[in-house]
Design a protein around this nucleic acid. Structure first.
Lengths: 122, 122
DNA sequence: CCATCACATACCTTGACACGTATATGCTGC
DNA sequence: GCAGCATATACGTGTCAAGGTATGTGATGG
């Protein structure tokens, strides 16, 4: 019998900004650990540890090339996110105005907090 | 001058399974806190705290109705995720076979860890 | 063999966060 | 006004994850 355990979802893997950065680099083209390290300005152990998490989640795979390990993306686990988003896409198409305003705001690096958050009804 | 601060991204908000559950319920129809509490089997403070996080991230909004607060989804922040996923969708269409296998596996509740993870190249 | 390169892992510390219990707030009908 | 309901918040606690430093491992060239 094999060893079984719960794989935590792609959502938590992707929550980490550095891991998203790694994936974004890898989706352009495969890269070695050292190349990622230099582009991302992270220490080498940090890169390796994130790659380990991504590997165990099935989001990347590695190929040995001499002393290097070349990583590339395996996008399948992202399907969980893609599918979860489906019901919300329906809403976007019905709220195109708010959507545009949102895109405007998020092009600034910072947002204002809404002071009052409730309006009356009934 | 308004009050400014960094809004953490929709990715980390969505990483929490209970928050995803709340959003999934709300996208079907708006609900009060008590209704969410009962359907999700969570304590009331837990629901309220998750709703607070979602509110401050702009993912839900509330309407006051007597002593109740009725929450509904504001899907715009999810656009960040939608846009980030874009380059990976390209890969899905080129790897339909691996994709199918992945969908098969994820319909079981548990997965086996790959024992060997590297193959030779060159 | 041995030094070195590329990468992985161990160990430790720190900070964030999710939950529970208890309590506060605010509205309502009587 | 007051009791009671619906929701929010405060506070304490445990867990877990991310980063840094140090060290292990394995392949390569000389």
């Amino acid at each position: 019998m094999g060893i079984f355990w719960s794989v935590d979802s792609a959502f938590s893997i992707i929550a980490e900004p550095n891991r998203r950065a790694i994936l974004t680099l890898l989706v352009a083209s495969e890269q070695s650990v050292g190349e990622l390290e230099r582009q991302l300005r992270m220490t080498q152990p940090t890169v390796s540890k994130h790659l380990r998490v991504l590997r165990e989640a099935g989001l990347v795979e590695a190929t040995v090339d001499a002393q290097r390990r070349v990583y590339r993306v395996k996008p399948e686990p992202l399907l969980e996110i893609e599918m979860w988003l489906a019901p919300f896409r329906r809403l976007w198409s019905t709220h195109l105005d708010a959507l545009e305003r949102h895109l405007d705001r998020t092009h600034r690096s910072v947002q204002r907090k809404p002071r009052k958050r409730q309006r009356k009804r009934r």
